[in-house]
């Protein structure tokens, strides 16, 4: 997600579009990205550390974005 203090023009565009479609009462929209990463085998602490490293190195830019990693079982 863009950090709270970073301007999010895409979120602003969505916020502007919602009332035009009749959706009232929305005060703020922030737009981010979601990556679904499939891992071979179990998600151990080591694997999780590796995924966090991916997030810091490539998937997010820590200068302007925050990230969070959540683990879900595959369907």
């Amino acid at each position: 997600m863009p950090k709270p203090e970073i301007l999010d023009p895409q979120g602003k565009a969505v916020l502007g579009a919602l009332p035009r479609l009749g959706f009232a009462g929305v005060s703020e929209v922030r737009q981010g990205k979601r990556f679904e990463i499939e891992i071979e085998g179990d998600v151990t602490d080591a694997v999780l550390a590796e995924v966090n490293k991916m997030a810091e190195t490539l998937l997010s830019n820590p200068v302007i974005e925050d990230y969070a990693v959540t683990v879900e079982a595959s369907a």
Partner: peptide
């Protein structure tokens, strides 16, 4: 250069979109 950390800061979408 910013993504490479050779320069500080970042460049984001124009404020007027």
């Amino acid at each position: 250069l910013c993504e490479s950390h050779l320069l500080p800061g970042a460049l984001i979408r124009n404020d007027h979109r």
